[in-house]
Amino acid sequence: MARSCVLLKYGELMLKGRNRGTFERYLREAVQHAVAGASAPVRISQRPGVVVLSGDLPREELVERAQRVLGVSVVQPVLRCGRSAEDTVDTVLRALAERFGSPAGTAPRRFAVRAHRRDKSFPMSSEQLAAHVGSRVVEEWGWPVDLGDPDVEITIEVDQREVFVGLDRQRGRGGLPVGASGRALVMLSGGYDSPVAAYRAMRRGLRCDFLHFTGAPLTGPSSTYKAYALTRQLDRFQGDSRLHVIPIGNAQRALATSGAGNLQVVAQRRLMVRTAEALATELGAQALVTGDSLGQVSSQTLANMATVEQASALPLLRPLVAWDKDEIIGEARRIGTAEISTLPDEDCCSLLAPPRVATRTTPAQFERVERRLDIDELVPKLLADVQVHVPGSD
């Protein structure tokens, strides 16, 4: 009897050579995380170029969880059946009946059959199988064949142990599985930008830890609550996320009293990057990730971004550097962080900000202020106050 399952098909992984096995291992881990906590046990079977998910849980839930997996280009709900032409025909007719009801009460639709044999030992060629199934659909349903622009596309895939029949193909998230490209530390604020930057970094195979700077004790805990909620949402794509929270309010006040003036905002950013670099080194992260978008605010001019970047020996990755705000908000809605980002909070970045922010800075301008503050001593003090949260996801 045909049973429901879901196929996850590779994207870029198909282009990998000798190290493809490593990428597949990370993909298996990502799939296991995505189905953890499902309403029923899920069986995971890895075949060449495809992962098969099956179980007794509702198909909609299985598809929704499958669509969380980074590194998958296509999510395809299918029926699996025995390896014979007649089993395949019966399963195709069942799938059509489940979708459209009966031939008598259904308007004719143009259809095509696309057959593919991963196992060439099947006795019929792909073209013969497609023609055989197509003729039976014409006979039973009376639909015309249209191979160029069909209303309904029936896909048939012959595997080593069974045949998969499907009527739908949904886009996966693409990219690379989390962890395949290394580890990074995301500087996470409460706005739209940094959560989207984190997602784009994860989509390129980076496993991400998260660092949030709060203005405490000069501000309340609202920004920490937002960062916690954002990390929880992003954890759906990788699992085992950690949120590190560092209060920086007193250090910001010290910068202001050290005469930072219109350099205050960029000086804060340099301090945050220095602190993030030190934490990243402890965590074994190989890069920092920020939500900077070129020219979006005064602290993100090209000159200021270069000045901030030189405060860290680690690479400073900016996945959104060429994105505009509408693109960022659109992506935030797609990944489920937009509603959280709109919640009110006390942003430490605007704390003690001067009326005018310097837009053309150089590292040399900060030597005096940072020397007065004794940055090398301040960073370990900030790290000593770090709090670690493990939000987790459903």
Rank of each mutant, 00 (worst) to 15 (best):
M1I: 06
R3V: 14
S4P: 14
S4F: 02
S4N: 01
C5E: 05
C5F: 09
L8R: 09
K9E: 12
G11M: 09
L13F: 10
G17N: 08
N19Q: 15
T22H: 13
R25L: 12
R25D: 13
Y26K: 03
E29L: 15
E29H: 12
V31E: 07
V35H: 03
A36P: 00
A38H: 07
V52P: 06
L53E: 04
L53D: 03
P58H: 04
E60M: 01
E64Y: 12
A66Q: 02
S73G: 12
V74W: 10
P77K: 06
L79E: 09
C81T: 15
V89D: 14
D90G: 15
T91S: 14
R94P: 03
R99D: 14
S102W: 04
P103M: 07
A107Y: 00
R109W: 02
A115N: 10
M124L: 15
S126A: 15
V133A: 04
V133S: 11
S135L: 13
R136F: 06
V137Q: 07
W143M: 11
W143T: 09
D146F: 05
D146R: 11
G148L: 11
V152W: 05
T155L: 10
E157M: 05
G166Q: 13
R169F: 01
G172C: 06
R173T: 02
V178Y: 01
A180N: 10
G182P: 09
A184H: 06
A184M: 03
A184P: 07
G191N: 07
D193N: 06
P195S: 13
P195G: 02
A197P: 10
M202T: 06
H212G: 04
T219Y: 07
T219I: 05
G220C: 11
P221S: 08
S223C: 08
Y225E: 13
K226M: 01
Y228N: 03
L230N: 06
R232Q: 10
D235H: 00
R236G: 09
F237W: 01
G239K: 03
G239L: 03
L243G: 05
V245R: 02
V245W: 03
V245L: 01
G249M: 03
A256Q: 08
A256T: 03
T257N: 11
G259K: 12
G259T: 07
N262D: 12
Q264M: 15
V265M: 07
Q268S: 05
R270F: 02
R274E: 03
T275F: 02
A276P: 06
E277D: 13
E277P: 06
E277Q: 13
T281F: 07
T281G: 07
T290Q: 08
T290H: 09
T290I: 10
D292N: 00
Q296W: 05
V297Y: 07
V297E: 04
A303M: 00
N304M: 07
N304G: 06
M305S: 13
E309P: 01
S312W: 02
P315I: 03
P315T: 01
L317Y: 12
L320F: 11
D326K: 12
I329N: 01
I329W: 02
A338E: 13
I340Y: 02
E346Y: 00
C349S: 11
L351E: 05
L351M: 12
L352E: 01
R356H: 00
V357C: 05
A358E: 08
R360Q: 14
R360L: 00
R372W: 08
R372S: 14
D376S: 15
L378F: 11
V379Y: 11
L383H: 10
L383Y: 06
L383T: 13
Q387W: 04
H389S: 05
P391S: 14
G392R: 13
S393N: 15
